[in-house]
Simulated scan of single mutants.
Amino acid sequence: MTQLPPPTRAARPQNAATNEYDDGPFTFRPATKDGHTASVAIQGPSGSGKTWTGLCVASGLAEGRRFGVIDTERGAAALYVNDLSVAFDTLPMRRYDPRDLQKALAAAAERRYPVVMVDSLSHFWSGADGTLDQVDHAKSKYGGNKFAGWKDGTPMQNAMIEALMAYPGHVVVTMRSYTDWVLEKGQPVNKGTRVEQRRGIEFEFGVAAEMDASNRLTFIKSRCPAFRGLVLNQPHGARDIAKPYLDWLRDGAKETDPSIWVAAAMSPEATVDSLLALYRDVEAASALASPLMHPETKHPTNLGDLIKERGLALTELDAAAPEFDLVVGAGDVVEQTVPVPPYEV
């Protein structure tokens, strides 16, 4: 009996499947508003009305549904619980590690809040264990070089903002601001106000506005044409901001349900190819960073990592499946299957 020699092939490098996700093709698709949600940032000094205005905007975006507030302001939002027509839940926080905000957003997504409000986002920059503290802690790894500490701080900050922008619902944040004084020729010069967060962060949001001590709101950035150059005195957040913003977003657009993506990722019928295609669809919707609780482990994760995890697990199963060879007997031809020895690396 003569046995045909088993195939010899190199094992697939472990990172090859990962690269299929991370190094995808550059594919243009038709432009659409489908699935876009509102993101509003309101900044201002203490007493300008940020929290109340933010709550009103959130209640308008929620359209009668209960929403969630991530509270760093020692319960300030809860003081208005009887002043709104919409109920809301609060999550008090006393530690402001940017990674903790990602976990809080995942918890909010698990509760399926249509709107999440962060009051305020400034704490995750300059509060205890915020980004600035993370940079200060990290500098010891680089010989006390604080500038080098940003190698750790910047990715944390960026991941936090990505999770916030990819929340599967509407987002409202407040941020503290202060007067920026600069010494010029020995004299203090007022350079206007500066937000207490990463410089330029307001431009991450679809709509950004600044409030002053007179409760006057000025839009400083807006993708929504209705707000460009607009100034509102003591604005009604639900009527003046939430409604026109929603009307514009929904004009010619379809809403999407991220839970459908999660169900597709966890489906028993999912394949390596279907998961890779799903990843591309979610990527095109800018939703890879959408925070969620892992359906099995109940640990915070995001939609992109969940899909990739499932895809790589199926890839490993396929690679571990036994191969078969054909054995040809002398005389009569008999087909018989036997497992092929392990691949040669």
Rank of each mutant, 00 (worst) to 15 (best):
Q14N: 05
V262M: 07
R9Y: 14
N19T: 09
E73Y: 10
S120H: 12
A17C: 03
F227H: 12
R94F: 15
A107R: 04
E20Y: 02
P98S: 08
T51F: 09
A285L: 07
A58I: 07
I42C: 05
T271R: 03
V207K: 01
V116F: 08
E323W: 12
T18K: 08
P30W: 11
P258A: 08
F203Y: 15
T72E: 13
N233H: 10
S286E: 15
V69K: 04
I42M: 03
S274A: 07
L278S: 05
A108H: 03
G169T: 11
Q14M: 06
D251M: 02
Q102I: 10
M266G: 01
A242R: 02
A138H: 04
H123R: 12
D305V: 13
W181I: 10
R111I: 00
Y113P: 03
M160D: 02
V345S: 11
T315R: 11
V333S: 00
L276P: 10
S46D: 04
A109W: 06
Q134S: 09
T131R: 02
K151F: 00
F28E: 13
A319N: 07
K146E: 12
E162Q: 12
S126G: 13
K308W: 03
E309M: 06
A104T: 13
T2A: 09
G311F: 01
G311Y: 00
K221F: 01
P225Y: 05
K141G: 07
E335Q: 06
Q134C: 10
P300R: 06
